[in-house]
Simulated assay, not measured.
Amino acid sequence: MHAEAEKDAEETATQGTAEEIGLGFAELLALLALQGGPSAQATAELLGVIDYADIPEVLSSGASALVARRFAEVGSTGELLVEGPVAGIAAALGDAERRMDLTLESREWSDRIVLLEAPGIAILLRPRAYGTWWALPQRADLPPAEATFQLIAGHLGEHPDGRVLVERHGVGQGYALSVRAAHDGGWLLGVKMPDSADIAEDPGDDAILLTALRAVRND
Rank of each mutant, 00 (worst) to 15 (best):
75 G>Y: 09
121 I>P: 13
129 A>D: 15
139 R>I: 02
95 D>V: 02
72 A>N: 05
70 R>T: 09
74 V>I: 15
119 P>D: 10
135 A>P: 07
80 L>Q: 02
77 T>S: 10
70 R>V: 11
110 S>D: 14
84 G>W: 03
97 E>H: 09
100 M>S: 03
69 R>A: 08
112 R>F: 00
122 A>G: 15
133 W>T: 11
94 G>S: 01
92 A>K: 00
91 A>W: 07
131 G>F: 10
125 L>E: 11
96 A>D: 07
68 A>K: 11
122 A>K: 14
71 F>V: 04
88 G>W: 00
133 W>A: 09
75 G>H: 07
101 D>I: 05
73 E>D: 04
70 R>P: 01
139 R>T: 13
88 G>Q: 01
84 G>S: 09
121 I>G: 09
85 P>M: 00
66 L>I: 05
90 A>L: 05
99 R>I: 07
136 L>G: 03
108 E>F: 06
123 I>E: 12
91 A>Q: 08
118 A>M: 11
94 G>F: 03
87 A>G: 02
117 E>D: 15
86 V>S: 01
89 I>C: 06
127 P>W: 00
113 I>S: 13
83 E>M: 02
127 P>S: 03
125 L>P: 10
83 E>F: 00
105 E>V: 10
133 W>M: 14
99 R>K: 08
86 V>H: 05
129 A>K: 14
127 P>I: 02
91 A>H: 08
135 A>Y: 02
141 D>V: 12
66 L>H: 03
67 V>K: 07
113 I>G: 08
120 G>T: 15
71 F>M: 13
141 D>I: 08
82 V>K: 04
76 S>K: 00
79 E>Q: 15
101 D>Y: 12
142 L>Q: 08
122 A>R: 15
128 R>G: 11
100 M>C: 03
72 A>F: 05
131 G>K: 06
112 R>L: 06
139 R>L: 11
96 A>L: 09
102 L>R: 07
122 A>D: 12
112 R>K: 06
66 L>V: 06
105 E>F: 10
135 A>M: 05
105 E>Y: 10
103 T>V: 06
105 E>G: 09
68 A>S: 13
